[in-house]
Design a protein around this nucleic acid. Structure first.
Lengths: 336, 336
DNA sequence: ATACTGCGTCGAAGCGCTTCGACGCACCGT
DNA sequence: ACGGTGCGTCGAAGCGCTTCGACGCAGTAT
């Protein structure tokens, strides 16, 4: 294991000089710098992370708390995580992976031990139990998702309310009057996860304004659950011609069931999904969709955090405007 | 920020005593221990990770390298990652998330800096460029996946060869003679990812032994790609009655297409998937499947690693035996 | 010439913890 | 009574780095 001192000796300078070459915090003559850099390369030196963290009280690590539940849209989580990790690297940070399992304790542990310089929280509930701790600790952090009370917090999220509204506008514009909303699994609503409730709020408000009828049904993913849900929907509202689907794992089952019942998409019913573009184009019908900008959210969260850590702080809520892409799954409502 | 010294003072003992209470490396009288623990609680003390790492040259962090590609089965990756993270926590380790992006450099960086005590590599290619480095560095590590040369390495994986064989035995037992294999995306084979090639090897070998005809076709996920692939298969082998699907994102499209063509599952054709159980039970037909034991692999990898770090080392290849669960998507071959 | 300014470099003091050797003390056997 | 043996505790020496003040030496202004 090569140390700073060895590099210094090899280059014929003091340890502090090597340190300053590395950090650039004081000016170093070009010749010295080159000599030091040469030594670093020759010896294959890598600064020791622990020592660095101790001396500078900066670990260059960002903690990312992802939910360990599997009842929510996994690919989105994964995409966010990967975007976070790669963006963090471009700023010199590594990612520490925390699962939701530990809950608030993880926040305590990480803030207390100086393991990470900052945190990103995913799967935020409206009244999340981690938030009081977070506010109190003064740990720089960004939430992906929006709690009920955002005071003193930085958040990044898709504007789910606007997303809901946008979905309804599109369907209303096509003449649909009776809309069914296939939501996330019931557990997601029971936890009061922000995005699910906000989407619903947006849908309902705009429905009222536009004079549409909306029937919302939570739904576990999968074929069987979807079959039951769909039967109930047509039972209660036989005139339903528009679907908004928020639960990705219900999309393909829904399409299969509609097909099986002889209802053509988009001639008889329109289906509008809220999902990443990749899913929308891979489905058995190319889906009109509002994209969940997973990558953008992850990238944004890291950049906010890095800004904070650099003192260019911004305690702010950033809502990403939804974008709807028309594909082949929505069309004019059938004339009765 | 509370330090060890403050705890020591508060409890009226020396710093080393507190340290020994924490680590249990020397015996401490019950009364002193209690006093110290009390002080720790009252002051809300958390050991500083950097200082600890520096003094002990142990970071209690395990690095996990996940692929950042999205052409492979994402839920499996996610499940492994979560299993790794939670298992690691039960042993007192945290997980550092590295994306494949950095490649071999990440190995260098982590080993060099002492950031992590050990590494877990996923998405291992048969001739993976990270392996020479890993062997040379002497960094404790476990691979999830099997390279061509496993000497000096510890690996955990599903026995993909046996998995392929098992699939064919099941279909052969039901009387199927012409089998089509829907594989992963072409890029996966081009990279020589171990699991894909080994599965194929197992399939082909057993096919020869059992006198079956096997047609293997790589396939990008999604409906359109599957449609093309399926058309070609029936074109080339009209008598195909059995399908083995390894690419999860091709499963649902395949089922939809078969349905659409009027081929009933399992009456006309049988479909056997290699996928996690959850996917198998959520599909539009409950799928007979060989499970990908993602959780088990993740758990196992961590446990191997912890054993190594504790000096109970075992340089070994652990192959998990495949298990086939019969559900509703396979049945006797139709009599012509 | 003198005083001043800045640049480039060095030395030393920590950062908070682990760990090793040493020490004091009670308790044992003889 | 005595040396021996553990057990429980302490002090001190680092671990490898960052960072602050200081210092020497130009170059510039007076």
């Amino acid at each position: 294991m090569v140390t700073l001192a060895e590099v210094a000796q090899h280059a014929g300078v003091s340890a502090s000089t090597v340190s300053y070459v590395l950090s650039g915090k004081r000016s170093i003559s070009a010749t010295t710098r080159q000599r030091v850099e040469q030594s670093i390369r020759e010896l294959g030196y890598h600064p020791n992370a622990g020592a660095r963290a101790l001396a500078s009280s900066r670990s260059n690590i960002i903690a990312l708390m992802i939910p360990l539940r599997t009842d929510m849209y996994v690919p989105v989580m994964m995409e966010i995580a990967v975007a976070v990790a790669t963006t963090a690297r471009t700023h010199g940070y590594d990612i520490l992976l925390l699962t939701g399992e530990e809950g608030p304790d993880a926040v305590r542990r990480v803030t207390g031990s100086g393991l990470a310089d900052a945190m990103i929280l995913m799967d935020v509930e409206l009244d999340d139990e981690r938030l009081p701790l977070l506010r109190r600790s003064g740990q720089p952090s960004v939430l992906i998702g929006l709690p009920a009370d955002t005071s003193g917090l930085t958040c990044v999220d898709l504007d789910w309310g606007a997303t809901g509204a946008l979905c309804l506008e599109h369907l209303a514009g096509l003449g649909h009057r009776d809309i069914a909303v296939i939501g996330e699994a019931p557990a997601v609503y029971e936890r009061h996860t922000g995005f699910a409730e906000r989407t619903l709020g947006g849908l309902r408000t705009r429905a009222r304004e536009l004079g549409l009828r909306v029937l919302h049904r939570p739904c576990e993913g999968g074929y069987d659950a979807m079959a039951v849900t769909l039967a109930r929907i047509f039972d209660e509202r036989p005139g339903t011609t528009g679907f908004v689907v928020q639960n990705e794992s219900a999309v393909e089952p829904l399409l299969a069931l509609l097909r099986q019942q002889g209802r053509a998409v988009p001639e008889d019913v329109s289906v509008l999904a809220i999902c990443p573009d990749q899913v929308a184009v891979q489905a058995s019908v190319r889906l009109t969709s509002v994209a969940v900008p997973a990558q953008e959210m992850g990238r944004h969260a890291v950049e906010q955090l890095v800004a904070k850590l650099d003192g260019r702080g911004t305690d702010d809520v950033v809502l990403i405007a939804p974008e709807l892409t028309v594909r082949a799954s929505t069309g004019p409502a059938p004339t009765p």
